[in-house]
Simulated scan of single mutants.
Amino acid sequence: MYTSRKNEPTYLAWSIFNTFCCCLPLGVAAIIYSCRISKAISLGDAGRAQESSRTAKNLNIASLVFGLIGLIMLIVMLVIQNSRM
């Protein structure tokens, strides 16, 4: 029975954004999984496309969270440093 969607979202643009702006290692992994989605769809492997799409989404979420945490830590450190002057 064919229950998977035919065109899974690739999240490629989000992956590229996360690579350059948030967390490089997780962003690169997300790009790799985003490319796997297109390949799986072209081969007709809906299950693998769905799994890769889910993985790319999770990697992008993790990358964004790590990037935001890093940004918040940087801002806090700058505020503390400037308050000592």
Rank of each mutant, 00 (worst) to 15 (best):
M1L: 13
Y2C: 11
Y2H: 07
T3C: 05
S4K: 15
R5P: 13
K6D: 15
K6E: 14
K6M: 11
K6T: 15
N7D: 12
N7H: 04
E8P: 05
E8D: 03
E8H: 09
T10I: 03
Y11N: 06
Y11E: 02
Y11S: 02
L12M: 09
L12G: 04
A13T: 11
W14P: 02
S15L: 00
S15P: 01
I16T: 04
I16R: 05
F17C: 05
F17M: 09
N18W: 02
N18T: 01
N18Y: 00
N18R: 00
N18D: 02
N18L: 06
F20D: 06
F20N: 02
C21Q: 09
C22L: 04
C23A: 07
C23Y: 13
L24C: 05
L24Y: 08
P25I: 04
P25Q: 07
P25D: 13
L26S: 03
G27F: 06
V28W: 03
V28I: 13
A29Q: 07
A29L: 09
A30Y: 01
A30M: 00
I32Q: 00
S34V: 08
C35E: 03
R36G: 13
R36Q: 14
I37V: 15
I37F: 11
S38A: 15
S38I: 09
S38V: 11
K39N: 12
K39D: 14
A40Y: 07
A40H: 02
I41P: 01
I41R: 15
I41Q: 01
S42C: 07
L43N: 14
L43E: 15
L43P: 09
G44Y: 04
D45M: 11
D45W: 03
D45E: 13
G47N: 15
G47R: 13
G47M: 15
A49N: 04
A49E: 00
A49L: 00
A49P: 06
Q50E: 11
Q50R: 15
Q50L: 13
E51L: 14
E51M: 14
S52E: 10
S52W: 13
S53R: 10
R54T: 14
R54I: 10
R54A: 14
T55C: 06
A56Y: 01
K57E: 06
K57Q: 06
N58K: 14
L59V: 03
L59W: 00
I61K: 15
I61L: 15
I61P: 08
S63M: 00
V65P: 00
V65K: 09
V65F: 14
G67A: 03
G67P: 01
G67Y: 02
L68K: 08
G70H: 07
G70Q: 05
G70T: 09
G70W: 00
L71F: 13
I72W: 09
I72K: 08
L74C: 04
L74K: 02
L74T: 06
L74Q: 00
I75V: 15
V76Y: 04
L78T: 11
V79F: 06
I80A: 12
Q81G: 01
Q81K: 03
Q81A: 06
S83E: 09
S83C: 04
S83N: 13
S83I: 12
R84K: 12
R84C: 04
R84T: 05
M85Y: 13
M85A: 14
